[in-house]
Simulated assay, not measured.
Amino acid sequence: MVERTNENSRSINRRGYLGAIAGIAATPVVGSVTGAADVDSESELEDEIEDGGTVDLDSDTVYEIDGTIRVTDLDELTINGNGATLEVGPTDGYVCKLGTYESPIDDLTVTDLNIDITADGAGGRALECHANDDLEVSDITVEGKHDTPSKGPMLVGVHSSSGSGTVSNVSMPDGGEEVSGGRGGTGMLVSDYHTGSVTIEDCHIGPFPDNGIYCSSDEGEVHVEGGTFENTNVAGVRLDGDNCSLKNAEFEYDESIPGFGGQRPVRCDGGDIEISGLDIYMSISQTECIRVMPDTESVSIEDCSISGGGARDAISVTSGAGPVDAEDIDVEGDVRETVYHY
């Protein structure tokens, strides 16, 4: 639960970002809410972020944001949230856009930050992080249900082929509402332009209408390790790309959500994918727990436990897919096939 203290609240209101002026952030209008402390002249949030280096937010402080914080072309940016909260106003646009795929930040770190999207219509992209060489995003909590048909709370990407990153302990337990015929928000996207390597570990993602974690980069590596995923539509984890992996994660599917057309834990869309150590509980009626699509070159699945009795098949392989090697799949309950080939 996000803790708020009135005496530490800060209000940062901004004009909307003019998308036609690439690379230039919105002009801020700064003030303080009734009963709140004044914003320190040297620590106006957007100015600090634009300058790069290390930005320390005040612990247990609420920063009310209306508009977009957008920065590009920095060598280094570290945002230490220190448990502070960004309170997002109604928007279906961007809130914190740190770098772009064309102008990433060389070394980017964002840690220990709460993001409050409980306001009606606050379902834009809360945090977008593009790094060139090094990315670290950790201990991020998104409070509230994503309630617009666009974007989703978070996107990450590493844009140098030799670059690497870690995204850890991100929590989005409330998921998102189905508001657009099954095409609502995705919890966490990996950029289509991602070319480096990123490890996503120990994240908790609730029921989103359009995937929990989704990557579709042809060149980059994505490795999902640990974490829990609940009742997400399309897939809790959806992988597409060379050298992707999914290991030691837990999936709980125990609620059929109206408007979610196909809730499944895992979908493999393309590339070479390794899957191991999954614990899947599926009590709702669905076609399969793991779906392998026709553009997938190869999939290795081993040491997985499937229970709950809700899936018709444990693993479904669509015609045209490359070889699927499944070993040590422990299935409890009746299924038509452990591996079913369409």
Rank of each mutant, 00 (worst) to 15 (best):
V198Q: 06
V198A: 07
T199E: 13
T199D: 07
T199L: 06
I200Y: 10
E201Y: 04
D202K: 09
D202G: 06
C203S: 11
C203L: 08
C203H: 04
H204Q: 12
P207Q: 06
F208S: 05
D210M: 02
Y214R: 05
S216F: 08
D218V: 06
E219W: 01
V224Q: 03
N233S: 08
A235T: 01
A235H: 00
G236Q: 01
R238F: 01
D240R: 10
G241Y: 01
D242I: 07
N243R: 15
N243K: 14
C244K: 00
A249H: 10
A249V: 07
E250G: 04
E250V: 09
D254E: 13
E255K: 12
S256F: 06
P258K: 13
G259M: 12
F260S: 05
G261Q: 15
G261L: 13
G262S: 15
P265Y: 14
P265A: 10
V266F: 11
C268H: 05
D269L: 14
G270L: 11
G270D: 12
I273S: 02
E274S: 09
I275V: 12
I275A: 03
S276I: 09
S276C: 10
G277Y: 14
D279H: 09
M282H: 03
I284G: 01
I284W: 06
S285W: 08
S285H: 12
T287W: 13
C289F: 07
I290N: 05
M293W: 09
P294I: 07
P294W: 09
D295W: 04
S298L: 01
S298Y: 01
S298V: 00
V299C: 06
